[in-house]
Design a protein around this nucleic acid. Structure first.
Lengths: 326, 326
DNA sequence: AACATTATCGCAAACGTTTGCAGTTGATAA
DNA sequence: TTATCAACTGCAAACGTTTGCGATAATGTT
């Protein structure tokens, strides 16, 4: 059997298609009697509007695209959840796309957004994205792009990020406060602007207080674990982890070596908040909330959609969540 | 500016809309010269077909809906990733919907699937879903439904599940093998068929070998932690965790009490594979692979889509992954 | 030269909606 | 009776595609 359409409702009821259409959307031209008749008929026949036809006709998809590296990620998970929640409130749907950090898939995703005539796009770019022209070209067809988390360096686009400098400073200052002497600091992908900023902020404070430190970059759990194993020979008293992935790798190494936290070694991380709570004592971390980011990104989107030409460049401030790891 | 359409390409090139359309899809009626001209024009004007119009006209969305409780979940994450991978290969898109285990949102999601004219639906029902008629009604409009993981009890629908009885038996048998004497067994939501089956399989083996056991149900980390704290006073030598959520709760309690694994207490879990690797020693677990489930579910979908009337009822077999926790 | 064949291409309808405008009622007022 | 008005409802075009069919021009065949 085929789907119920306005035409079918029209045939069954004897009313015209336009009357049916108007009755279903509570148009004042239609009498209450007719409305009741039509809505009842529609529900018994399980009528659902064909959204393709609606969007084609109205030229409004009420759809946002969102491109993330992967949905299997504590941080992007919560960003998506938050975007969806806001979207639901405002009657927008989400088309979730994963880039896998592959620029080619990213390009294909942008194409999908165009084909689907999204009203807006939330984008988190890959480490290898050199050319953001395809994103900016979307503006020509009236779709606004909000970059989030991993954003291009140029200033003529909307951005929403978690605190870069502040979060690293907070971690560094806590290390200072706890009078630590030798720090192993592990940072994420060095291609990202956020990594550079955090690196600079962190090391600056270390330098100011003449705290010895070793730094390294790592983008995977396994690599972080290996790095930790190597560097533990240098006897650091503290390890700083810029991401959840790094933290899990570091913790594997620490646990394997049976080191006691925080006595043998202290740990502090920047995290979305789940992983640190799995250990005992729980890991002290600087929270970078995906939920807050999603909410703010949505606000920016709504602002540009309602005509604001102002370039949005916002930051989520971090908070310190104390565990017992330092 | 507005999007480029076939009409616009037609006006610019002087060719008819139909010729443009056929040229772009490499129709044999069109000469190579014309094709080249059209494709070049299309790419300079950034033409992307309006997918709404295409779907409306062709009556084929090449879209699958997938309803999960939440995408922030190790298991459903990997199911989705797998479905997407298969979908990409077969040129299908995914509409990802979260129910939040709320039957009302689930109903709204089904409605969305109808509106979007999905070709098929992968559904994981909520614990409170009593009436699956809305799902089955989709068959009337030619969309096939594959239930996965949490499935209805009735037999007239397609299902793909992880091993229920086997995975519990494997865990139980390992406990027997290790000559454990007193087991705390924590199971998930008691509404689910899979929980009942695992419960029965597990307890049967315990009974056969006269092993003492305490059982309880838990659906959250916090509750699992509380339960563990209470039951630890009974001095079990082993804890069995049916889900990752339970495992994290149990581990919190164990770590807080500073118990040594596996000497003070042994732990064994049924898991998707990530959480058990975070601890040291790593937790021994029965793997229930979301990736495999996704792949199999997709196969079932393709089978029914290509006309098979055979009721698919498949199971992913489990494998034992040894850690050092028992 | 007359005809058949092939290679190209265009016309127009259809998919299911929405919506400006015009048409049809019935009642009321003059 | 006729004009006026309000309350309803329908007509038809448009959104951007796809596709069966028919038209035209070019080529080959006898």
């Amino acid at each position: 059997m085929i789907n119920t359409t306005l035409k079918k409702l029209s045939e069954v009821s004897g009313l015209s298609i336009s009357t049916i259409s108007r009755a279903l959307k509570n148009h004042p031209d239609i009498s209450e009697k007719t409305k009741l008749l039509v809505t009842e008929l529609a529900s018994t026949l399980d009528y659902e509007p064909n959204i393709n036809a609606v969007h084609l006709r109205t030229k409004n998809s009420r759809l946002f695209g969102v491109i993330v590296p992967s949905i299997s990620n504590f941080f992007y998970d919560s960003v998506i959840a938050s975007l969806e929640e806001e979207g639901r409130k405002n009657n927008y749907s989400l088309m979730i796309l994963q880039s896998g950090d592959d620029p080619e898939i990213e390009a294909a995703n942008i194409k999908l957004c165009r084909q689907n005539r999204v009203n807006g796009l939330f984008a988190c770019i890959t480490p290898e994205t050199k050319d953001i022209e395809p994103f900016l070209k979307l503006k020509e067809v009236d779709v606004s792009v909000i970059f989030f988390d991993r954003v291009p360096e140029r200033s003529d686009c909307h951005k929403v990020c978690v605190a870069d400098i502040d979060s690293a400073s907070m971690a560094a200052n806590l290390i200072v406060e706890k009078q630590k002497k030798k720090v192993l600091a592990l940072f994420g992908n060095s291609n990202f602007l956020i990594t550079k900023k955090r690196f600079n902020a962190f090391t600056e404070i270390m330098n100011q207080h003449s705290i010895a430190y070793i730094t390294a970059y790592s983008s995977s759990e396994i690599h972080a674990e290996e790095l930790t194993n190597e560097c533990l020979t240098l006897k650091p008293d503290t390890i700083f982890c810029m991401t959840d992935e790094i933290l899990t790798g570091v913790m594997r190494a620490i646990q394997k070596k049976q080191l006691k936290i925080p006595d043998d070694i202290a740990v502090i991380a920047i995290s979305n908040g789940f992983i640190p709570t799995l250990y005992y004592p729980q890991i002290t971390y600087i929270e970078t909330s995906g939920k807050k980011l999603g909410k703010l990104a949505f606000q920016s989107m709504m602002a540009t959609l309602s005509g604001s030409t102002f370039i949005q460049d916002r930051t989520i401030e971090s908070i310190l969540v104390k565990g017992g790891s330092i």
